[in-house]
């Protein structure tokens, strides 16, 4: 198990305390806050969320898996997101995704076994004028080309991990 799978119970309590108990309507916002704290939604967090809001595990699990923005598996240290919006698509986004898949040796939606990188695709981030677009750790890189993406990813993987 990776270091990320252990979650801090105090932090979990702290996030839960920010949300009123027994109010199921707050589920999606609570899941966002839990994910912001743990970078993904650990099983334990989902179970506690269910308890806190008075929902069943099944309901919470059903909701967490419905929305694309929630991750039930630990994510990599670096997140590479390829925009697959229409504008990016007609400007060749598929090739960027393929390049990243080759470079990182994972498929879209997966994390490298060493937890260094997660490769994701997103439907559109509303920065269409910059297409094709790749977001690396939150920073937008517009007018991307496969070879440039390769170099960017290479630079990140050369750097020592932060832990």
């Amino acid at each position: 198990m990776s270091a990320q799978a252990v979650i801090d119970p105090a932090e979990l309590d702290e996030v839960l305390a920010r949300h009123p108990q027994g109010q199921p309507a707050g589920l999606v916002n609570l899941l966002h806050d839990l994910q912001a704290a743990f970078r993904y939604l650990p099983e334990q967090a989902l179970e506690r969320a269910a308890e806190h809001l008075g929902l069943s595990s099944a309901e919470v699990y059903g909701v967490a898996t419905f929305y694309e923005g929630f991750h039930l598996k630990p994510r990599g240290e670096h997140i590479c997101t390829v925009c697959m919006g229409t504008a990016c698509h007609v400007r060749g986004a598929a090739r960027l995704l393929e390049q990243a898949e080759r470079d990182l040796a994972v498929r879209a939606g997966q994390t490298t076994p060493d937890l260094r990188f997660t490769l994701e695709q997103v439907n559109c981030v509303g920065a269409c004028a910059l297409g094709p677009l790749v977001i690396l750790d939150g920073k937008y890189h517009g007018s991307m080309a496969p070879d440039r993406l390769s170099r960017l990813l290479g630079k990140l993987s050369d750097k020592k991990g932060s832990k």
């Binding site: 099983e43 989902l46 595990s57 099944a58 309901e59 919470v60 699990y61 059903g62 898996t65 419905f66």
Partner: peptide, 16 residues
């Protein structure tokens, strides 16, 4: 029981 996932990946299952 839960309805899990969505779209063409929707399935019926148990949590976790």
């Amino acid at each position: 029981l839960a309805a899990v996932g969505r779209g063409d990946k929707k399935r019926i299952g148990l949590p976790h």
